[in-house]
């Protein structure tokens, strides 16, 4: 495969042509905040708005999960403008997140916690008015629990459910603040054709989909999780 040469944070990098900047960076040990990127997905979802970087010659920051690498490209992952956008996106997520880490199965393996420490945002940020959901928790499946109130709408479980297993039990429904990952007619997951493959729990970056027995999910979707500790 053809490769291109580019620079990310001053580091000279070679990446396969067509690869997105986000993956090129992650593959080279440079972390860019992200929640919704899925390496194997044919189209980036680009919904979390955390992965902004600055590219020389561009007017404004761009999302690195949608931007293909190019010969001679100079990328800055730490630029103030992109960092500001990422921080605001994170603060908006936290504004509707019921932070309760002490009682959360994802405590210490949660992407929100990692993003907060990386971007210098407090989990209990008060920048935006707090407005949380009050939806019922779904414990219908034998080995996992779904708490929609903690969902950050990253789409990873939805993608995994359909693209990898062709089931398509989970999907997005409703609009605006009410948008939620749910099932047909908001039925309990166990009544919606779920095959309990557990894959969606593995990929959930936060405490929305968790194992009942307290098991931590292993990094499921790509190397996304293992790389986040760096930087």
């Amino acid at each position: 495969m053809k490769t291109v040469s580019l620079t990310i944070d001053g580091k000279a990098i070679k990446a396969p042509e067509g690869q997105k900047v986000l993956w090129a960076a992650l593959d080279n040990g440079i972390y860019i905040p992200n929640l919704c990127a899925i390496r194997k997905a044919s189209e980036p979802y680009a919904g979390c708005r955390l992965c902004f970087v600055e590219i020389e010659g561009r007017n404004g920051p761009v999302t690195s999960c949608t931007e293909p690498v190019a010969e001679g490209m100079v990328v800055n992952t730490q630029g103030p403008r992109s960092r500001r956008l990422a921080r605001t996106a994170l603060e908006l997520l936290l504004a509707s997140h019921p932070v309760d880490c002490a009682h959360c199965a994802k405590n210490r393996s949660c992407e929100l916690q990692k993003l907060c420490s990386l971007l210098g945002v407090k989990l209990n940020t008060r920048r935006f008015r707090k407005l949380v959901h009050n939806l019922p928790i779904d414990s219908s499946c034998p080995n996992f629990t779904y708490n929609p109130n903690k969902c950050v709408l990253c789409s990873r479980c939805v993608w995994t459910c359909r693209e990898r297993y062709g089931v398509g039990v989970l999907g997005f429904a409703h609009r605006g603040f009410d948008r939620v990952v749910t099932t047909f007619e908001d039925k309990p997951i166990a009544e919606s054709g779920c095959r309990v493959c557990d894959e969606c729990i593995e990929v959930c970056p936060v405490g929305a989909l968790v194992f009942k027995d307290g098991r931590k999910g292993t990094p499921g979707c790509a190397e996304v999780k293992s790389k986040t500790a760096t930087s």
Binding site: R162, G168, L170, G171, A173, H174, R175, T182, F184, E185
Partner: peptide, 12 residues
């Protein structure tokens, strides 16, 4: 299309 996608569009 997955049933939930039809529901998603109807509720959107």
């Amino acid at each position: 299309v997955p049933e939930v996608d039809v529901y998603g569009v109807v509720t959107f």
